[in-house]
Design a protein around this nucleic acid. Structure first.
Lengths: 200, 200
DNA sequence: GCATTAATAGAGTAGGCACTACAACAATAA
DNA sequence: TTATTGTTGTAGTGCCTACTCTATTAATGC
């Protein structure tokens, strides 16, 4: 008999996923070849398909992990103070702004979501929960008077998510600085919501 | 003898480009097949490659046309009044917000720009000229006191472009409304720049 | 009408793709 | 050691890709 070594298995799997994420980010979903992933991960194709049944599953594993981190994080946010809750939400949404593969991965996601109905549905679902949480925070902030602008909470939530997405798209720019531009993003959101001075 | 009919040639070429734009938007650059373009345009592959030497040239023709429209438009903007100039620039940047193929095309652009150095350079160049124009408008507005926030003009220009890009990203959403959300985008920019009330 | 040649379709081609079959290997349990 | 079984690499396999070749059609000038 021989038993499985779950640690080694998980480590190898993670290494392949890391290499795959880089390739997907650089070449997009269709542009990424399994051969390129094998080369970068330093494994043969037999090994690759021993760990993952197909290319699509590999991509889903990368992306849904990232999305889950955000959505579960948002659920755990303490919403008693709207200003703090907003800060926490923005922290989560902008957590990977410094990651160089983030913009490419985001573009690949958009691409596949448009064609793959099942994948698109899961992305929309995750997005919806993010928006719902943000909308609640915005609504609470307006009621308590912390946010003074007359924004529609749902529309505001959509735009805040879009704004963070936009951050990822420009994050491969030479002039982009994760810290500075992260702060700028917060300033834009604060101005948009009419956040009272001294609450940040 | 027989001469070329430039009108018919141009018309056919435009028809193929239109079909190609749809396919590129739906499937991304690598996902789009020339066969799919042929089917949608209703031509054989021989015809397709009679009009375009290869797939890449086809994509460049679509994208550079779009980019040129924006950059040349921005150059022609009357910059005497910063508030009006900003409005005009935003009009140009958000002109295609209602176009259903815009988000897919944008994603395909990002994807190819990351891998194709020459194409990436032209995209960056166009982007740079857009940013430069916006930065000038923002700087002028700050000097004249129309924009009251202490923003860095270049950074603000980058984020305004990012914000319009964000608009395209969410424009395939069910809840998206070109008119309403276009207005919301202007509100965000106005709040961000601290635009004095009554100037819009 | 006739010659010329642009325009077009469609079969064909070489290469690259995701994925598989399989043999060899290596780690464990007895 | 030996049997067992997860793990790995190599050499495919058939399909799909961008693109080409060639024969045919049809529009023009004389």
């Amino acid at each position: 008999m021989r038993t499985v070594n779950p640690e080694k298995h998980a480590a190898r799997r993670a290494a392949i996923l890391g290499a795959a994420a880089e390739v997907f980010a650089e070449r997009g979903y269709d542009g990424a070849t399994t051969a390129a992933v094998c080369t970068r991960a330093g494994v043969g194709s037999g090994t690759l398909f021993h760990y993952f049944p197909d290319k699509r599953t590999m991509f889903l594993a990368i992306v849904t992990d990232d999305l889950d981190t955000v959505t579960t994080g948002l659920e755990r946010i303490d919403r008693t103070d709207p200003a703090r809750a907003l800060d926490g939400a923005l922290d989560l949404l902008t957590a990977d702004l410094g990651d160089p593969i983030a913009p490419g991965l985001a573009a690949a996601m958009i691409q596949l979501a448009q064609r793959d109905a099942e994948f698109g549905a899961t992305v929309v679902a995750k997005d919806e929960s993010t928006r719902a949480t943000l909308a609640e925070i915005v609504a609470a902030g307006r009621e308590s008077g912390v946010f003074e602008s007359a924004v529609d909470p749902r529309r505001a939530a959509r735009w805040i998510v879009a704004l963070t997405d936009a951050g990822y798209l420009i994050s491969d720019d030479e002039e982009f600085d994760p810290a500075e531009d992260g702060a700028e993003l917060r300033r834009i959101v604060a101005a948009y919501l009419g956040r009272r001075a001294g609450t940040d």
